[in-house]
Amino acid sequence: MALNTPQITPTKKITVRAIGEELPRGDYQRCPQCDMLFSLPEINSHQSAYCPRCQAKIRDGRDWSLTRLAAMAFTMLLLMPFAWGEPLLHIWLLGIRIDANVMQGIWQMTKQGDAITGSMVFFCVIGAPLILVTSIAYLWFGNRLGMNLRPVLLMLERLKEWVMLDIYLVGIGVASIKVQDYAHIQAGVGLFSFVALVILTTVTLSHLNVEELWERFYPQRPATRRDEKLRVCLGCHFTGYPDQRGRCPRCHIPLRLRRRHSLQKCWAALLASIVLLLPANLLPISIIYLNGGRQEDTILSGIMSLASSNIAVAGIVFIASILVPFTKVIVMFTLLLSIHFKCQQGLRTRILLLRMVTWIGRWSMLDLFVISLTMSLINRDQILAFTMGPAAFYFGAAVILTILAVEWLDSRLLWDAHESGNARFDD
Rank of each mutant, 00 (worst) to 15 (best):
D27Y: 10
Y50A: 15
H184P: 09
L347I: 11
A268I: 02
K160T: 07
L373A: 03
L234I: 05
L94Q: 01
L336V: 13
R260E: 05
T67F: 14
M155C: 04
C236F: 00
I330S: 11
R355A: 15
R62I: 06
I303V: 10
D297S: 05
Q29F: 10
L169Q: 04
S48H: 15
L282Q: 08
L323K: 08
H237F: 06
R30C: 12
V170Y: 11
F425N: 15
K328C: 00
I319E: 10
I131S: 06
P390N: 00
R258V: 04
W415Q: 08
G190R: 05
L255W: 06
K265G: 02
L354N: 11
G396P: 03
A73N: 12
D297F: 05
V357L: 10
L276D: 08
I339G: 12
A307M: 08
P325V: 03
M356V: 11
V163Q: 06
I330F: 14
R30I: 12
K12Y: 10
G173L: 14
I14H: 12
Q7Y: 08
G315I: 08
I43V: 09
N422F: 14
L3M: 08
L3W: 12
M164D: 08
K328F: 00
G293E: 03
Q295K: 06
N209Q: 03
S305M: 12
M356W: 09
S119C: 03
Q345P: 13
G315W: 13
E215Y: 12
L336I: 10
P249R: 12
L130F: 08
V357H: 04
R216H: 05
M76N: 04
R256F: 03
G173C: 04
S193L: 02
Q344F: 14
A70N: 14
E42K: 14
F192N: 04
N281K: 05
L153K: 01
C266K: 02
E215T: 09
R258L: 15
R258C: 04
L368T: 08
I316S: 12
L234Q: 08
N291T: 12
K111C: 02
F123H: 02
V324P: 05
G293W: 06
R231F: 06
N291A: 14
I172A: 08
A417H: 10
A223M: 10
G346E: 14
G171V: 06
G171M: 03
E419V: 12
T224G: 06
R258S: 05
I285C: 04
S372L: 03
R68E: 06
N101D: 10
F341S: 07
I199T: 13
V370M: 04
L337Y: 15
L159E: 02
E407P: 03
E228T: 09
I8E: 14
R258F: 05
G171W: 00
H207S: 15
A280G: 06
G127Q: 02
T358Y: 09
L401F: 07
A320T: 11
E22H: 11
D427W: 11
M109W: 04
L300A: 03
S48K: 15
M164Q: 10
I400E: 02
K160N: 12
S135C: 06
R245F: 08
S308N: 07
T202P: 07
Y182N: 08
G188Q: 10
L78M: 09
E212R: 15
W267G: 15
T201R: 14
C266H: 02
S48C: 13
G190L: 02
Y138V: 05
V203I: 15
Q220T: 07
A268Y: 02
S45A: 10
V399R: 00
V179H: 05
V195R: 04
A73T: 13
F141L: 13
W162Q: 01
M375C: 08
S376C: 04
V170T: 15
L384Y: 03
P242R: 11
Q108W: 03
A56S: 11
R97M: 03
T334Q: 10
M375W: 03
E215W: 04
L270A: 08
L306Y: 00
I303M: 06
E407H: 09
Q295S: 04
P284L: 03
L413Q: 10
M103D: 03
A2R: 11
L94A: 02
T75N: 14
S286K: 00
N379A: 04
R226S: 15
N310Y: 05
C236W: 00
F217H: 11
P10L: 10
A128R: 00
L368E: 08
P151I: 01
D181A: 03
G20A: 07
Y289E: 01
S206K: 15
V210E: 13
T402C: 08
Q220F: 05
S308R: 15
V210N: 13
Q295F: 06
H90M: 04
G293A: 05
A320W: 00
A268N: 07
R348D: 08
T11A: 12
Q108P: 12
A49K: 04
L373E: 05
D367F: 00
A314Y: 13
L78A: 08
V275Y: 04
C343E: 09
G293Y: 04
A128S: 13
L368Y: 03
L347P: 09
L323I: 12
V170I: 05
A385H: 05
L263V: 06
D63W: 15
L169T: 10
H418D: 14
M103W: 07
G389Q: 01
A223I: 10
R225N: 09
K342C: 09
L373K: 15
F395H: 02
D181L: 01
Q104I: 05
D297W: 03
Y241F: 13
